[in-house]
Design a protein around this nucleic acid. Structure first.
Lengths: 235, 235
DNA sequence: TGAAATTTTGCATTTCATGTAGTTTTGTGG
DNA sequence: CCACAAAACTACATGAAATGCAAAATTTCA
């Protein structure tokens, strides 16, 4: 089959880029709601109908690029190192993701605009949360594939949800207060590592008996263990 | 001023209920996308325009009721008991929430339908995630109000995000697999308590020096402390 | 060059959502 | 019981998102 992209593919890429660039510019200039799809298409010199053959919706034009970051995180998890603990693996994946985000200046510039839009337009916020949520589901799957026999479904979900949830909430809240991207990233990283540190110290509780889980689901052996627990009185 | 609601208010309530009931029934019968707003209005015997004076959008008709659950959780956090640790307070709030959800059969029936719709319609999933996210932000605020001088912003966000994130992801994933509401609730509760247990054993790391936070942000004193910390080497 | 495949386009249509202006219903005070 | 003000509702018009379809236009390949 073809090696070099070919004119048709190159043109498609150019059109897609023109559309996203025009969209970002217009959103910044006039606001998201005030910008119509037909204006975006006009600015990119294509018909309105063509816009929708590139992006399923007006919102999607903002999120099409983030896929590569997601894939990197998934790849990191998939390449578990020999002898690496579950939490160690997650720590490495989190670090790799934050490092990649922090290092790329061009991406960071766009992220600023996208971030501002996401923070201020509810429908975009919802879309972003959905994207992140789907990512978490993929992460859970990847984690289970990389560490079979060490995590049952609920445990994997708890670990991923806890770490990503902490980073997300901390990051969003900081971003909402108008902090710089650097501060936002730092807060997210810090929150994730706080949760990881807690998980690192205490292996998940002993497997509950009556929990049939399709897979065997045994208690994951982590690095170390220490004080069992002292649960507070009651509910 | 008026004590008893008054006819006007009662009628409004009836109309709102009629609208939600009609919407749920039609959504179930014909699917969400296939149901138009005008059909819902027709079934509830009001004009299409009136629908939008009750609900800002077609999606909102599904989520208007969940507000009371949110308020209960917030109230629990606000009523911190004397001497209660931060994690203990959160544990109690989580338990109260899950107990309330598990106990009310009428709510559970509706939750079934809503759940199914949320799981299958992306725009509804996005809306639900947004709602949950806003709830988390309110929780962070409430937690900081209830425990001033014990948590800085990032720490509060990490704790809430971690616990809720774990419960959410575990619950959604189970729900997606078609598990019963009981199983979904159990998995959510279990995941939340797993994260809480981890946090309980390890107090957040010593306050980082160069972190100016609008509020003093001192190291959170939890109920008990033990192994100081084993912070991971570096980043 | 010419035929096949694919992309783009214009047009029609549907639905969500909002603004406006006018009518009906409700609460209140004489 | 009636009249008046406030509110809730309705009908109508409008704008924009999104989709389907068939007719051009463009690329690919023989």
């Amino acid at each position: 089959m073809g090696e070099m992209p070919g004119l048709r593919e190159r043109k498609k890429l150019r059109t897609r880029r023109a559309l996203t660039a025009a969209a970002l510019r217009l959103f910044m200039e006039k606001g998201y709601e005030q910008t119509t799809v037909s204006e975006i298409a006009m600015a990119a010199d294509v018909s309105t109908r063509t816009f929708f053959s590139y992006f399923a919706s007006k919102e999607e034009v903002l999120f099409h690029t983030s896929r590569e970051h997601i894939d990197r995180a998934l790849r990191t998890v998939a390449e578990r190192r020999a002898g690496e603990s579950v939490i160690g693996l997650l720590t490495r994946a989190i670090d790799a993701t934050f490092d990649a985000l922090a290092d790329n200046p061009e991406i960071r510039r766009n992220v600023m605009v996208v971030n501002h839009l996401v923070m201020t337009v509810p429908s975009l916020q919802a879309h972003a949360l959905l994207l992140l949520f789907d990512t978490q589901r993929e992460l859970v799957e990847a984690l289970r594939r990389a560490c079979p026999d060490e995590l049952d479904l609920t445990q994997a979900a708890a670990v991923v949800g806890g770490v990503v949830g902490a980073a997300k909430l901390a990051g969003f809240i900081r971003a909402n207060r108008g902090d710089t991207p650097e501060e936002v990233l730092a807060a997210g990283r810090e929150a994730a590592e706080m949760t990881l540190a807690a998980l690192r110290a205490v292996p998940p509780p002993p497997s509950r008996p009556a929990r049939d889980d399709t897979e065997p689901g045994r208690p994951p052996g982590h690095g170390r263990r220490e004080s069992g627990g002292d649960d507070p009185p009651g509910r």
